[in-house]
Design a protein around this nucleic acid. Sequence first.
DNA 1: ATTATAATTCGACTATTCTAGAAACATGGA
DNA 2: TCCATGTTTCTAGAATAGTCGAATTATAAT
Lengths: 97, 97
Amino acid sequence: METNEILVALTAIAQSSRLAVFRFLVQAGEEGRPAGKIAEALDIPPSSLSFHLKELYSAGLILQRQDGRSLIYSANYARMNAVISYLTENCCNGQSC
Amino acid sequence: METNEILVALTAIAQSSRLAVFRFLVQAGEEGRPAGKIAEALDIPPSSLSFHLKELYSAGLILQRQDGRSLIYSANYARMNAVISYLTENCCNGQSC
DNA sequence: ATTATAATTCGACTATTCTAGAAACATGGA
DNA sequence: TCCATGTTTCTAGAATAGTCGAATTATAAT
């Protein structure tokens, strides 16, 4: 992953509604949750939530699938792990830490 | 670590100059680097760098020590690891990921 | 077709953050 | 004490991000 993608992912997650949404989905597992349930669980107005989901989605941190008229979102664990790896890359100048 | 501290840390690192500074320090190891060297290496004007170092410092992501008239900054690995742990906490609803 | 439901996009507004020159502050050496 | 050096603080303008009601789109059920 290149620096700019990392930055986009970090920016996406560094906002209180989005951090809450992302964690909610991380904890929900592969199954995910429809937008409406997320809005309800976290008490975020639909138009605001939609704005935040778009950010997370375009950062690659969440996945989307359709089921009837619901859009179901789930965490993209692979991308989360890639971001984490980037942060610790070439860490500590050879020492332990 | 509580949610708000995590948010402050993520916000601190989710900015291009600060991400560059943080990685530079992560790679520099315990020894750290004086502000002037960071500014030079990353080509950031001193006053801008100072603004960013303050953000990183108050987010707890970097440490500061004085040596003569230099201020030497280094990465706070413990805090970085705490942030990473938070993101993966209660992950995946029991499944692997 | 009509109506209901799920969610998104639009738009206008507010708030926050970034930038970097100039000025100030602190330390060390002559 | 005076000057040079390293860094920070101040300031104000520019840029970016967040909020959410109203309108719109898409799917499904009757």
